[in-house]
Amino acid sequence: MPGLLVTLLVSSSTALAQTVSRDTSFTTHSAYLKAQKQHPEISVARPAVPKGVRSSSALTYCNLPGGRALQLDVFYRPTKRQRPAVLIIHGGGWSSGSREQHWPLAQQLAGHGFVAITAEYRLSGEAPYPAAVQDLKTALRWLRAHARSYAIDTNRVAVWGFSAGGQLAALLGTTSHDSLYAAGPCYRSHSSQVQAVVDADGILAFLHPESGEGDDHKGPSAATRWFGASKTVRPELWEQASPLRHVDAHTPPILFLNSAVDRMHAGRDDLRRQLDSLGIYSEAHTFPNTPHSFVLFNPWFEPVLNYTVAFLNRVFETR
């Protein structure tokens, strides 16, 4: 598997080092080459950084046992006025991708008055489900622990995710009270609750008639690698990780941003019906004739940003 080497420090009487090959098969460039074949007009979205936006990069949000340091980046405009925060979660089939792919989005959100955070999480090649969910819950606790440093309003925290990151964002939003995902050694006294979710082409139900996940006839699928078992061997895990199975009165409002690839948002309409029955606000916007990776490219980046900002302003009543 192609990749660069990530060094993990292992605790012992003598510090030992081992290497894990990081999957770099999904990058903005690889997604562009694939999408450009059908959409020659597209370009990678790299808008100018809004005036006054600053960043704090490669901050460690948790040191895991064994010396693994999980990192994030914060984009903000200095101010004393409290602002909502948005945790941005990259995609890549739970096995690839990187937080840097969404720096342009984070910069633009910061320009619109949000504190935007891009966080890494352990991928399937390093640790199987539910490690990624637990890592991101820890990132949410970190941002609340450091709210004063960035003038974050801890009662207005959103998660935004693309693809696998969208599934993770929806799962974070629907499992606020589930102790399974609260594991992790860092900032345990702080909350990991979220008050809004933006799911950009993330699956809502793995075992669903609309889902294409779990096709292993050419080798283990992305989801099979993440769960460490096929859907026929461990179906309970696939159900457990489906946001659709966790919707209740505590679920926050959700914005769905979707490509023309229907299987990438399997379970969305069923989940929206549940939200409607509970009186919870949701929106869904589908971009016609778009590839799965549409959020990374012009001409779709700007409307994705605009829908996100309008939704968060509505939910958070931002002035």
Results as ranks from 00 to 15, higher is better:
W94H: 08
W94K: 05
S95L: 08
R99E: 04
R99S: 10
E100R: 12
Q101T: 11
Q101S: 13
H102F: 15
W103S: 09
W103G: 00
P104Y: 07
L105I: 08
L105G: 00
L105Q: 09
Q107H: 03
Q108Y: 10
L109R: 07
L109Q: 00
A110K: 05
G111V: 05
G111K: 00
F114I: 06
V115D: 04
I117R: 05
E120L: 02
E120D: 15
R122W: 08
L123Q: 15
G125F: 10
P128A: 09
P130F: 01
D135T: 01
D135K: 05
L136C: 06
L136Y: 02
K137C: 05
K137Y: 05
T138G: 09
T138Y: 01
A139N: 06
L140R: 00
R141M: 10
R141D: 10
R141H: 06
W142D: 00
L143E: 06
L143H: 00
L143Q: 08
A145S: 14
H146M: 02
A147Y: 04
R148I: 13
A151R: 14
I152C: 13
D153M: 13
N155Y: 03
R156C: 09
V157R: 02
V157E: 01
A158P: 09
W160H: 11
G161R: 02
F162Q: 15
S163P: 07
A164I: 10
A164Q: 11
G166E: 08
Q167E: 15
Q167C: 13
A170E: 01
L171N: 00
L172V: 01
